[in-house]
Simulated scan of single mutants.
Amino acid sequence: MKMISIVVFCLLTFMSQAQQNEKDEVMKVINQVFEAMRTNDSTLLKKSFVAEPNTFTAFVDKDGISKLVSGDFQRFKNAVGQAKEQVWNEPIWNEKVEIDGNLASVWVDYAFYVDDQFSHCGVDAFHLIKRDDGWKIFHLVDTRRKENCEIPDKFKP
């Protein structure tokens, strides 16, 4: 009986470590996106996504109407790669990663700053697919608001 317990413990430990390694690989891709934004590196950004990802923004407009706006990834990639004097910084926290086979979902809280100036906050929700060349983002939707932002002190300028 003791031997069975040891084997089960070892298997659970191994499976837990494998799952954590996979989550780390997924978060590496997510963190590349924000590094690309900080460093104006559109090549790094492109490496994180499939060729034609779907992007959306969900928000409530000034009249209180719920909106979902489709994004243009090429435009976003070009904006990231443009030389600019300001730094786009988007710290993230409360990462939630779920994986089933070759599909992953990541939900993170964020705050967006241009240099040290707060712009907005919200949630980024990513869907990724695992391919031969690793995890790639195929869907991204974010929310945006300027109020009710509970940003941890370590992410404030």
Rank of each mutant, 00 (worst) to 15 (best):
E90D: 09
E35A: 04
I151G: 05
E25V: 04
C149A: 11
F73G: 01
D116M: 06
K130Y: 07
L44F: 05
N40R: 04
E52L: 14
D41Y: 14
Q74P: 00
I99N: 00
M15T: 10
G122F: 09
A51N: 10
I151Y: 07
L11V: 15
K130I: 15
K136R: 13
A111D: 03
K136T: 02
N54R: 12
N21W: 11
S119W: 03
F49R: 03
V29F: 04
I129K: 09
K77I: 04
K154S: 06
K23W: 05
A79E: 10
F49S: 02
K67H: 09
L103R: 02
T57P: 06
L45K: 08
V50S: 07
S42R: 05
K146Y: 01
T39W: 10
E22W: 15
C121P: 03
V97E: 05
C10L: 12
L128N: 10
K67W: 08
F155N: 06
D115Y: 02
H127K: 14
S66C: 06
R144P: 00
V50C: 02
G64T: 02
N89G: 06
T55V: 06
V97W: 05
Q117T: 13
E147P: 09
K28M: 15
S48N: 10
D72I: 07
K96F: 08
T57Q: 13
F73Q: 07
P91A: 05
V8S: 06
I92H: 11
I6G: 03
H120R: 07
F34M: 10
I137M: 08
K154E: 01
V97C: 08
C121W: 09
D24I: 08
R145C: 04
D41G: 01
D109S: 13
V50P: 02
D115M: 03
F126P: 08
D142R: 00
L11I: 15
L11K: 11
Q17V: 15
D132T: 13
V106R: 12
F56A: 07
D116R: 06
K47S: 15
V8H: 03
S105N: 14
T13N: 11
Q74I: 03
F59C: 03
K46T: 12
G134D: 07
A51F: 01
E147A: 12
F126I: 00
K136A: 04
A79H: 08
W135Y: 04
E25G: 04
K28F: 12
M3G: 01
Y113W: 13
